[in-house]
Design a protein around this nucleic acid. Structure first.
Lengths: 234, 234
DNA sequence: ACAAAAGTGTTATTTGTACACCCATGC
DNA sequence: GCATGGGTGTACAAATAACACTTTTGT
């Protein structure tokens, strides 16, 4: 077997959306040990010998923040030789979107401090974690354009106004209400589940994301997508 | 320092396009040692202690296939605990697009056999390399839609007919000539560099990819892109 | 009555799609 | 003059962008 002087870790960028304040946040933990003691960092840690990478990411995430049952996806692997002062440590980064209200952070749950930070007001971060978050934000902004990620960031039931506000926050620009609604409804991936109650204005229709409809859209759309050929969006 | 029972490798999926035969190919090497002796595999190998990941990928690629000076980009990290019979080996996969004519493979150059294979006629592959190539093909098909990848796969000068044939091969479907031309020329990222000579039909205009024009397009287009908001292509 | 947010009608413009046709060259 | 690809005109359909308007609720 080949000699192995390289350690392997996983790190998780967890995004949460605060729909009251219209803010996008990331989940961080405060380090208790050197290096970067007391710095904030991404939840993560060393991969164990017989553990799949995604498994390791989910385990570390739960251990350090008690967040569980989330869908994570691989982001990128960071392997610059100097990224960790302890030696050669390569890290596989994952990212996920969660509903912030469903994951309140119990401060100091087990000596490990975890907290949500606005992504535009992050504290100084350990290692190259600022780069990792930056890449995750870029990925999120791209992803939001072709996948219905919004639904993972909102409560199960939501209004079109909330959904639009989320998109405006993630993209960082205002959208036209009329066109947003037409577009999102034409996709036919939402189902009505009721009306708002007790608001001081016309009550909005509440919607829920319908996964079956979304799958149907995927199947139906894929050939057209290919046919369209090249967009050269960027 | 944390104990480290995990080895780290890199693997490269190198795509080449044969414009005479209109075939997309991948570059493979034949293994000389166990495990998977005599199987075909992706060029790659162990990352050295003080080496960046991308550096390792380029080094292994050149050592095993003598292909150099290519732009590689990270694809995905494969870390299933069972993927290598020798023990725990995690592999960071890269991929690249090259002009096949510029990289003829000198068979048996140094006891290491390398060859181009049509991506729809791959031999049995070592490890999980079939999965890696599959993911690379998917990535290529997606990428082709929003980035002008074609130019890396063609000779420096090419006709619109060749470019269209490439897109048809990668996407696996026919495109309308009129619309393809209108679209690609409207992007204004090509410059004319002459005419074909000695062909038994009307000589085609030769084009070259203009990187400055492409950068300009990127800059100009990005705000519109964001504004467009959501496509939900899939 | 008013504020606030939900929700709708409509139009000009741009983009996508499809099909038919003409052009220049070598043999 | 014919086969072979290169290259163009055009018209209909669909998507996009923009703006002004009406509706329903609580106070």
């Amino acid at each position: 077997m080949h000699n192995c002087p390289i350690s392997l870790t996983v790190d998780c960028v967890i995004f949460g959306y605060d729909s009251h304040r219209r803010e996008l946040k990331a989940l961080l933990i405060q380090r208790k040990n050197a290096p970067y003691r007391n710095y904030w960092a991404l939840p993560g840690g060393f991969v164990e010998k017989q553990e799949a990478l995604e498994e390791a990411a989910l385990r570390e995430l739960e251990e350090e923040t008690s967040v569980k049952n989330v869908f994570i996806e691989q982001l990128y692997t960071f392997g610059s030789p100097q990224r960790d002062p302890r030696g050669r440590v390569v890290s596989v980064a994952y990212f996920a979107l969660v509903n912030l209200e469903e994951h309140p952070i119990h401060a100091d749950s087990d000596a490990q401090q975890a907290a949500w930070f606005r992504i535009d007001q992050l504290p100084p971060l350990a290692f190259d974690h600022a780069d990792i978050i930056q890449m995750a934000i870029t990925r999120l902004r791209n992803k939001v354009r072709y996948q219905p990620i919004g639904f993972e960031l909102l409560p199960e039931q939501f209004t079109l106004g909330q959904l639009q506000a989320l998109y405006e926050t993630v993209l960082g620009l205002p959208l036209n209400k009329r066109n947003f609604r037409t577009r999102i409804l034409k996709l036919n991936i939402l189902e009505e589940v009721g009306k708002q109650q007790g608001v001081a204005h016309r009550p909005a229709t509440l919607y829920r994301f319908n996964k079956e409809k979304y799958r149907a859209l995927e199947r139906e759309n894929y050939p057209n997508l290919l046919k369209r050929g090249l967009d050269f969006e960027i």
